[in-house]
Amino acid sequence: AAGPEKLNTASVFSTQNFLGAGAVRLSEELQKATGGEVSLEIHEPGDLVPPFEVFNSVSSGAIQAGWDWIGYWAGTVPITNLYGALPFGPSPEAFMSWMWAGEGTELLQQAYDPYGVKVLPCFISPQETGGWYNKEINTPEDFEGLSMRISGLGARVLNKLGASTQLIPGGEIYLSLERGRIDATEFSIPQVDKAMGFDDIAKYYYFPGWHQSASWFSLIVNQAVWDEYSEERKAQFETACRATLQWSMAVAPPQQVRTIRELEESGVEVRRFPDPVIEALQNAWVEVRKEEMANNPAFKEAYESLMEHVGLIEAWYELQELPAPIPVDAAQGES
């Protein structure tokens, strides 16, 4: 067989936002690479199966493919926490290097192999934000008793500091934060958060997003379906995937800063966690990391591989470090 020409793909995000738009972009790149012969037929979230059931359905073959945030599957494949939301992790550039020039993709694929799922990591979102808060965070003690909507490893870090981390369904976050049912929530990058309207109901927008340094999104394909494609087609998928990745890395960062400026104008107070707070969070993360590495050998292997790779990159940049550029000075007639 020649493989499906229109790959049925269940997206876990609406294609109306940047995260889901990645799937649309991938489909366009795929059409370019295959001369219009292959594309994705993208279904909105819940159209075929509920978002949390996409991985399972791709594995069983109920649906052919999915467009996901990799961290969604941490309940099933625990190492996806590392790809989706790794606290105090590397920059998108260093992470990308590990994925494509290190062991990143290979280790992820190994974890997916038992489920018969082929993974193509095709999209990276920049570091998320520290979240929307209605309470000031001045010291680590301010996390004591704070109720926040956050999942995964970041939630476990906050638990160490005494926060109550909660599970609130997507549609109810807005009202829960507005009415004080929760004190804080993390969601995504500014571009996506703004569309959710959090700026109307939260006072503070905290940075940095310590709980999620860079997060990966991917196309997952049922292995049997993937194997129907010829070697040439598979290579075309990889090409389209890299083009999409490059696009996401290029367009995202400047757009976030433009959005933040708009948010500030509409009255949101953009803040940075004080250094002692970040330090306390990082110390708590080291504890969580220790537990995770003890309980989860696959996570340990991937984490160590990632850190070793990142070490190489950092050493290079450290050697090459220059002072920050001096801005162009119009007064001196430079422009």
Binding site: S59, S60, T76, S151, L167
Partner: peptide
Amino acid sequence: WLSEHFVRMSYLSGEQSNYGG
């Protein structure tokens, strides 16, 4: 019958809450 895969996969992977539940 078709749910069998979905239960088996959950069992084999030790699927659990991602919210500490």
